[in-house]
């Protein structure tokens, strides 16, 4: 087994190395113009140089702040809304058509509105991030609440649990795996939208730096920043997956033990 993992890492490293070599060769040997695709070594060099500047870290901090704040707002709002909609009889059916209509609306459609209301500021980023992330979490919370066993529900009622303790001890634990799935999806979407707002509207952050590099014709820097955006994206994915595992590690559904 251990040998299997070792060779997988080996293959993975070979794949990454191969990509870098191909990129390097493509521009050095000429099939692709160096102005359009700089050699991989230069991109990595530019990335290292960028990482040594304070501006980059400030921009990155702004992106992550917009991401985290927007995600947190969307998460809390969606969990609260999902719990209410899922727990009040009839509300689920009454809101179904509205949710199903609003959910697929691409959040980039709100870019002009964000520009008018907030201009190139954190507000624009938040509007897009919150709208996009909200639906991802809400849908999962609704699935989760619907998953609560009807018998368990009746039992809880017959023992006279209040609405609040029903939610705390029955609905929330059941829905937790769904909530975490929603958070994982929302985190990725929120990062995309944070970068988008910066790139298109010009809110401060990594996206704006990419836009600036493009306007200035600093191709290598632009590539370096795109690579950085990808690395941050990987970190977001890995981090949220780790969080999900951690939160659900002691969850009854994972441990296979019945609550109560």
């Amino acid at each position: 087994m251990r040998r299997g993992i070792g060779s997988r890492i080996g293959y993975g490293a070979a794949g990454l190395g191969g990509l870098l070599v191909v990129m390097e060769a493509a521009s050095r040997l000429g099939p692709v113009d160096e102005r359009f695709l700089p050699p991989a070594s230069e991109i990595l060099g530019a990335l290292a140089a960028e990482l040594a500047t304070a501006e980059l870290w400030i921009a990155l901090g702004e992106t992550m702040w917009g991401w985290a704040l927007g995600l947190a707002i969307a998460f809390c709002a969606a969990v609260a809304a999902g719990m209410v909609i899922g727990s009040v009889p009839g509300l689920r059916a009454a809101t179904h058509s509205t949710v199903e209509f609003l959910r697929p609306i691409p959040s980039v459609a709100l870019i002009p509105l964000a520009t008018l209301l907030f201009g190139a500021s954190l507000g624009s980023t938040l509007l897009l991030v919150v709208y996009a992330a909200f639906w991802q979490v809400l849908i999962q919370v609704l699935y989760g609440v619907a998953d609560v066993d009807a018998v368990a529900h009746d039992t809880a009622r017959s023992y006279g649990l209040s609405a609040w303790s029903r939610i705390r001890h029955l609905v929330w634990p059941t829905a937790l795996p769904y909530v975490m799935t929603g958070l994982r999806l929302a985190a990725a979407v929120a990062f995309i939208l944070a970068i988008t707002a910066e790139l298109v509207i010009g809110s401060p952050g990594l996206g704006l730096s990419i836009q600036a590099a493009q306007s200035a014709g600093a191709v290598t820097t632009m590539y370096a920043l795109v690579v950085l955006a990808g690395l941050v994206g990987v970190a977001v994915n890995v981090g949220v997956r780790a969080l999900e595992r951690r939160v659900l590690a002691w969850h009854p559904s994972v441990r296979g033990e019945a609550p109560v």
Partner: peptide
């Protein structure tokens, strides 16, 4: 890695 790159940065 490629999946984690936010697609909009592909535009520039």
């Amino acid at each position: 890695f490629f999946r984690a790159i936010p697609p909009p940065v592909l535009v520039p």
